[in-house]
Design a protein around this nucleic acid. Structure first.
Lengths: 174, 174
DNA sequence: TATTGTTATACTCTATAACTATA
DNA sequence: TATAGTTATAGAGTATAACAATA
């Protein structure tokens, strides 16, 4: 299995995905989504954070959803899952938890100045990932693709548009 | 958290994904890919099979990649992972393993008539999944989306096009 | 009694590598 | 020694539910 095989010796045995799978948009979406996740995980690794952390910081930066429940709901994360993420963010001093005096069951979460700075870096990472992903598309194709995905998201992802609470998939992966 | 909150009482606390994530094509791809995977798993469930089984049957139906190694390589599956899938397919009499007399280390795998029939059903399921996924897009948009995803696949998925063996992500998920 | 955040448990997936039989 | 297929083990990731504090 070293040389040959790519060429003509066993031409039909090339490791090629079946046509019927490549013809399925759903299949491509699954594989590309997985590849994107893998790329993202790798890219965020160096910062000691992951895309989930970025998502949490992004919610906080928009303000107005600062209790843990609201953050989890906005992102579709399980609340138990969020606890660990916040622990890690707090340990790096990127966010701060405070008990809500009005309802002492609640925790209020805020971005710290460090958190803001880190968020800026994570945005740059995300931008780079998008650029790498879309490298072979021109501007118009990128816009087209994004618009089409937004349309699908409105139909299939919870919290993407007012109207539709659809069958919720389990927790969520960034 | 029962009534109100959706309306005007706490308008800013809606469980809505942050804009900066929705603006990322990579993010949408990840979420939609995950949703598609979830939908597919659910849809295949009734048949006692899953999308991985479908993929294996699809490879076999194209002929010419009939040893376990070739199947695994075509789909990007780990060979250990494939063993279990084939066990399950063989138990349902959808495929048959035979030892290759020319090289007794190898197993040759064939579709049975039942396997062919089942594959036809799985194709119908896959078709339905695609239709549901793309329900809100018209024919032209569907074609556009698929073409764009194929372009990304050629760049980012192994085995999608001759030329480029790119950094291989771990095993693979349907 | 219900809810917020937390912790613990169990289960699924997957990555790795040991193992066998053949070459 | 290397390869095809198999099996076993360990680790990560995730779903579930129990729990303590507060309402």
């Amino acid at each position: 299995m070293s040389v040959t095989n790519q060429e003509a010796s066993r031409p039909a045995t090339l490791p090629r995905l079946p046509e019927e799978l490549l013809a399925s948009t759903s299949f491509l979406l699954k594989r590309l989504g997985f590849a994107a996740k893998y790329q993202a995980l790798t890219a965020y690794e160096r910062s000691g954070l992951n895309p989930y952390h970025h998502a949490v910081l992004a919610v906080l930066d928009e303000g107005s959803r600062e209790t843990q429940g609201a953050i989890a709901d906005a992102l579709g994360y399980d609340r138990g899952q969020l606890v660990g993420l916040l622990d890690e963010l707090e340990e790096q001093k990127l966010v701060q938890r405070r008990r809500d005096p009005a309802d002492r069951r609640r925790h209020t979460v805020q971005l710290t100045p460090d958190g803001k700075r880190t968020l800026a870096k994570l945005r740059a990472t995300a931008k780079r990932l998008d650029d790498e992903l879309l490298a072979t598309l021109d501007e118009s194709e990128r816009a087209q693709l994004h618009a089409l995905l937004v349309k699908l998201a409105q139909q299939h992802l919870p919290h993407c548009t007012p109207g539709a609470p659809n069958t919720p998939p389990p927790a969520a992966r960034h």
